[in-house]
């Protein structure tokens, strides 16, 4: 499923638009960046409450194409600037990590 369609269906707020071509086939949920580094493997989407520059750095290093920031957390401008540079899409949702993961899981299974 492409990331734009997923964001629209889940009603995420778009902070930084992803490319149409960015297909999401798997996701990883974690707030621990070392854990993301070690275990996110081939995930395309990161579901997290961590919204700072290092989240972008980890996503970039781990090959993650999009980040969903949960619980309506604030995303600093410099983080969005970094994400733009790394070509990583950033979305925000009011739901928590569990609810967001369930929604993404349903979409990926259907």
């Amino acid at each position: 499923m492409n990331i734009k369609d997923m964001a629209r269906t889940c009603q995420w707020e778009t902070l930084l638009e992803g490319a149409d071509a960015n297909a999401i086939t798997s996701a990883y949920t974690s707030d621990l960046l070392s854990d993301v580094m070690a275990n996110a493997h081939d995930a395309d989407l990161l579901i997290t409450i961590q919204a700072h520059n290092n989240t972008v750095a980890v996503a970039s290093l781990a090959g993650i194409k999009a980040i969903v920031v949960c619980n309506d957390r604030t995303v600093p401008d410099d983080t969005l600037a970094s994400a733009q540079k790394e070509q990583i899409a950033v979305y925000r949702t009011q739901t928590n990590q569990f609810e967001t993961s369930c929604a993404v899981g349903k979409l990926l299974q259907s």
Binding site: L33, S34, D35, M37, N54
Partner: peptide
């Protein structure tokens, strides 16, 4: 709180 310090760094 920034997502570091879980004691995974060096082992990873």
């Amino acid at each position: 709180s920034l997502g570091f310090g879980a004691g995974l760094g060096l082992p990873n």
